[in-house]
């Protein structure tokens, strides 16, 4: 009985150690999934703006998601979820070495996403259209500084 308990404890320790080696994996995967949702939302809004008769009902939930994620985005990057985490990520170490700069980039995203969302919830297509370029600039500006190239 004692041996079984010891064995179980050892197994548990090994399992814990194996898990602890990459505690950041779920965080990284989740934020990558979130960014994909944001890109899909941007595309969904652009598709509507492009059509002859933009559908506000299609724009609103996407604008809300962007604003909502704009609030969260900094929390997706806990210390230790960078390239050293063992999971493939293009998050550059500068995110953490220059956290103040990263915060400013996050704030730009939040301001831009809120402007898009305000216009969308207010039903003003022209204002949505006018607010989108600042949002895409916020996206690519941060990617230029804090995301490694694809290859």
């Amino acid at each position: 009985m004692k041996h079984i308990l010891l064995g179980a404890a050892a197994l548990a320790a090994i399992a814990t150690a194996a898990y602890a080696q990459r505690p950041a994996a779920p965080v990284i995967q989740q934020r990558q999934a979130n960014y994909k949702q944001m890109a899909a939302a941007v595309k969904g809004i652009n598709d509507q703006l492009r059509s002859g008769s933009p559908d506000l009902a299609a724009i609103r939930p996407r604008a809300a998601l962007l604003a909502n994620y704009g609030v969260q985005v900094l929390r997706w990057f806990p210390r230790g979820s960078g390239p050293q985490a063992g999971t493939r990520t293009r998050a550059r170490p500068e995110i953490w070495s220059d956290w103040a700069g990263f915060e400013r980039a996050g704030a730009r995203l939040l301001v831009a996403a809120r402007a898009v969302n305000r216009a969308a919830q207010g039903g003003d297509i022209a204002a949505v259209r006018a607010a989108m370029p600042a949002l895409t600039r916020a996206c690519s500006g941060c990617h230029d500084d804090y995301r490694a190239p694809e290859h």
Binding site: A40, V42, K43, N46, T136, C139
Partner: peptide, 21 residues
């Protein structure tokens, strides 16, 4: 086609979803 950030897309990309693109 579309890039991963949805910043650049082919002229017919609006006809398909982000995932498909």
């Amino acid at each position: 086609a579309i890039d991963e950030d949805a910043l650049h897309e082919g002229p017919l990309s609006y006809l398909v979803s982000y995932e498909t693109a």
